[in-house]
Simulated scan of single mutants.
Amino acid sequence: MKKLMLASVLSIFALSTNAAIKTVDNPFQSNTVLKESVEVDHPLFAKGAGGSQCKGLPSTCGQMANCEQAKQALKCGNTRLDRDKDGVPCESICPGG
């Protein structure tokens, strides 16, 4: 009996106009243009990093051709290459830096 009563109450609620789903404007979706530049504190967006030196670099140590390529990828913000955080990337191909 309780289940029947609950089902009927839920049915009435679902059919009422107050239960309608309404869309809300997405504040992140707009055509507004920023009037000022925005500084992003992230290695991939650092000045000097990026550009043509960072495009097309491998992302893992196993894909690196040499130690210099690994060092460049680290400068471009790929901090995963330096697991022990000693500043030396891909220690298998850059022993001691």
Rank of each mutant, 00 (worst) to 15 (best):
M1Y: 10
V88E: 11
C94V: 05
F13L: 15
I93L: 08
C94T: 05
A20T: 12
L6G: 03
D82C: 04
S30A: 13
K22D: 09
N26M: 03
A73W: 00
K85I: 02
S11N: 13
L44C: 04
R80W: 01
G87W: 02
D25V: 02
A49T: 06
S92Y: 02
I93D: 02
M1A: 15
S8Q: 14
G51C: 07
P27S: 14
T60N: 07
G51L: 04
V9W: 08
P58G: 11
T32A: 14
A70T: 00
C67Q: 03
M1H: 13
L15R: 06
A49W: 00
L15E: 13
A73D: 06
Q29W: 04
I93G: 00
C90A: 09
H42I: 08
G77C: 06
F28C: 13
K2C: 11
A19T: 13
C90M: 01
N26D: 15
A19E: 13
C54E: 02
A7G: 14
G51D: 04
A19P: 02
G50P: 02
A46N: 08
S11G: 15
R80T: 10
C54Q: 01
A19C: 14
E36W: 07
T32Q: 14
N78R: 01
S8Y: 09
A14Q: 13
T23H: 08
N26F: 06
I93T: 00
C67R: 03
S37L: 07
E91M: 03
A49H: 04
K3D: 15
D86S: 06
Q69D: 02
D82V: 01
K3N: 15
V9L: 15
